Simulated scan of single mutants.
Amino acid sequence: MKDQSRKRHIAKAITWRVVGTIDTILLSWLISGNPLTGLKIGFTEVLTKMVLYYFHERVWFKINLTKDGKLLESRKRHIGKTITWRMIGTLDTMLLAWWISGNPLTGMKIGVAELFTKMIFYYIHERIWHRSRFGLTAHNVNEI
Rank of each mutant, 00 (worst) to 15 (best):
I124K: 09
I110D: 00
V19D: 05
L95Y: 00
K62P: 01
R8S: 00
V141M: 13
V51F: 11
W85P: 10
S74K: 12
W85K: 02
W85I: 00
T48E: 02
F61L: 13
T44E: 05
H78P: 09
M119A: 12
I79W: 06
I144T: 10
H125Y: 11
G20S: 02
E114W: 13
D3E: 07
A138L: 05
K76C: 04
I124V: 07
Y54G: 00
G20V: 04
G107S: 06
F55E: 02
L72M: 12
F121V: 14
N64W: 13
V51Y: 07
A13K: 01
L96R: 04
K7W: 01
N103T: 03
K7E: 02
K40P: 03
R77S: 12
I88L: 14
G89Y: 09
S74R: 13
W60L: 10
G33F: 06
M94K: 03
K81I: 02
R58I: 15
T106I: 13
D3F: 05
K40T: 03
L52R: 06
I25C: 07
H9Q: 11
W99C: 08
T90K: 01
K62G: 15
H56T: 05
E57P: 10
M1F: 08
G80F: 04
T44S: 10
G33D: 00
L95S: 03
S5C: 00
H125A: 09
K62V: 02
E73K: 15
G33V: 05
S28D: 03
L47I: 15
L115S: 03
S74A: 15
L105D: 02
E73R: 13
K76Q: 07
E114H: 15
V51Q: 08
I63F: 14
L115P: 07
I10N: 00
N142P: 00
W29E: 04
K109Q: 13
Y54V: 06
P104S: 12
M87N: 04
L71G: 05
V19F: 13
K109W: 08
I83E: 03
D23Q: 12
K109T: 01
L115K: 08
H78T: 03
R6K: 04
W129L: 11
T106Y: 07
I144D: 12
G42T: 01
G111F: 09
L96M: 09
E126H: 08
